[in-house]
Amino acid sequence: MHEWDFAATLADMDLLLLGLWNTIQVFVLALAFGVPLGLGLALGRMSRTPVLSQLCSFVIEFFRTTPPLVQLFWFFFALPILISVQMTPFVASVLTFSIQSSAFFAEIFRGGINSIDKGQWEAAKAIGMTRKASLRRIILPQAVKRMIPAFAERSIELLKTTTLISTVSYADLMFQANELASKTFRPLEVYTVVAVMYFFLILVFSQITILLEYRLAKSGEGTMR
């Protein structure tokens, strides 16, 4: 029977915390770029211009159907050759996950916007609002409220997917864990600790979104699912 010994792992906890910090950086940046990009893609897909709509649909479906790891490899290994730029693991990671998650966010936006009753568009139109103003003032505020559960779920997926960047040697939590495991020869303890860290990171994040949902539900109409 194996004797558990966390001493070596905990002694190098700062390595893991650094990894955690790097993970959070990529996660936050990918969200910051991915959400607006997702909104753009969603509006593009719903546009009445067929070319724009088809192009956005293609981008969305392409990034939803190809595995994130393949995308990451493509952006890290292939893109730099194609356009001859220097690609760091960090840039490749942020680029990949911004675009990848934007495709999923786009579908959430689209679903949210489509779920709003047609009468809301009509009422806004009838008081003279432009399409843009209706979207911004009337439709989106209601849609976003409904999107929060799906949005949270997708963000958690993103957070978990960031582990892939360890494969292009970006020093995220997963990568640091691999390093530490080979340094200490204690993979069981290291990977268990890392699993627990991810578990709590995600737990904290999902609790925050539940709180947010609750707060929003109190103002005006409740969140409808």
Partner: peptide, 19 residues
């Protein structure tokens, strides 16, 4: 649901044999 699949795969690959 709340841990990454990659962590799970790696755990099973490197940690489970030790255990």
């Amino acid at each position: 649901r709340n841990t990454p699949v990659l962590v799970q795969i790696i755990w099973f690959f490197f940690a489970l044999p030790v255990l």
